[in-house]
Design a protein around this nucleic acid. Structure first.
Lengths: 224, 224
DNA sequence: TTAATAGTGTCTTTAAGACAGTATGTC
DNA sequence: GACATACTGTCTTAAAGACACTATTAA
């Protein structure tokens, strides 16, 4: 039987860095269901101009924080994910700046990523989707400006190194991070410093006009 | 209005190297339509276990040659591509080895890619889809074993260089190609040589057991 | 012997990485 | 001044790239 249509959903894997120095993923729990699940939903033909709009709406159901980055990961279609038959799932991931805010929904929670997967089991194949999104993100972080999207407005070079440590469990040397980011035009010195009980660190912000988003090498120290 | 479903199609951008030293894309023409178009179709819930199966079936409608490589490029969903409303298109590209065979369908043709786009206009947004698939492929060719998938069973190192020339309009120096491919375990020396009116070239084949599919740098000489 | 392409030797370049050293703040 | 972290200097390494050179075949 040839299908013009199938059940379509857009699933969102939203990542942020938490204050416990863990990467976290946004989940929620429906009443009467035992397991947490990812934000997901159908296309709304009136509100959504594109699939990314649909993904964005899923995020907005649970938080007011906007994402700094969206990327389509994969579209999975098969006849065994959903018992009702052929289903199609478009998976996006989103990156958020660190935030500590009221969730819009009582039942939503940010779950730690530990050892490359959510610390708690998720419903359906959602753990698998998180892992696929994470794999994509872990790769891209190594050759793009992506670390910046997980950081607040103003950040230090050490913060960038910290993103690598949290996401990949290992980080390139500061020398390499410095050379890469300072030699690119990605960063703008804010003139501000972050003070601690040590030498203050220069605070940078992302240069919105930069077009050197991609580098042509991976860091070797962060390879598996 | 919230949609459980929308019109879904899987569109396939099949590339091969032609004997005129051009990259070509597979198209076909329906009766009574003025323009060529890409192979595309609906999911068949009985035949297809996955979206890639659907893509594969689109290829098989027009040629017996199997593809050596499939990759999902993007899923586009919006309410203006199809006049009937919200539609969803999953785009794949496929790579074929060079071949010169009867097409299964009278109305199918391999069209040259010239200046980064099909030499003839395609229906709908199909030219755009070709360009997106091509962009993805042009990028990946620079850091992966992908050039091999466009070559016949046995090939020479110069053939690899030629793939770069055709696809990117420029190629890395032989020295670099040699170092990369010979130092990897991607190639197996067949012991055969290809003879011309010059020094014979060593013929290699792909090592199916290799897992060094990816390199950690792009060639700089092939950057835009 | 020559033309033509295959393949090597070797030096340069680029960016990452190692690592020691200096700088500048708080306490 | 002790400390902690920020930042720099400089040598090494890995792989690409430039380029001249040698190798091997057919004609």
């Amino acid at each position: 039987m040839s299908l013009s249509t199938a059940l379509i959903s857009v699933d969102l894997v939203a990542f942020k860095l938490a204050s416990n120095n863990r990467l976290q993923v946004l989940t929620h729990q429906l009443p009467e269901t035992p397991l947490l699940q990812l934000p997901a939903g159908r296309i709304d033909s009136e509100q959504d101009q594109s699939l990314q709009d649909t993904a964005k709406r899923q995020l907005e159901r649970f938080t007011k924080e906007p994402a700094t980055y969206y990327e389509q990961v994969i579209t999975i279609g098969d006849n065994h994910r959903d018992s009702r038959g052929w289903s199609l799932t478009v998976v996006y991931y989103a990156l958020l700046q660190p935030c500590d805010e009221q969730m819009l929904s009582e039942d939503s929670r940010w779950i730690d990523i530990i050892d490359g997967k959510p610390a708690e089991p998720l419903a359906y194949d959602h753990s698998q989707l998180v892992m696929e999104a994470l794999a994509r993100m872990k790769n891209k972080i190594q050759y793009s400006a992506l670390p910046i999207y997980l950081l607040p407005e103003a950040f230090t070079l050490s913060d960038i190194q910290n993103v690598f440590s949290i996401v990949l469990d290992k980080a390139p040397p500061m020398r390499s991070i410095r050379n890469r980011f300072i030699n690119s035009d990605l960063l703008v010195n804010t003139g501000q410093k972050r003070h601690g009980s040590n030498r203050p660190a220069t605070l940078y912000r992302a240069n919105a006009n930069s077009n050197n988003w991609l580098f042509d090498r991976l860091y070797l120290t962060t390879r598996a």
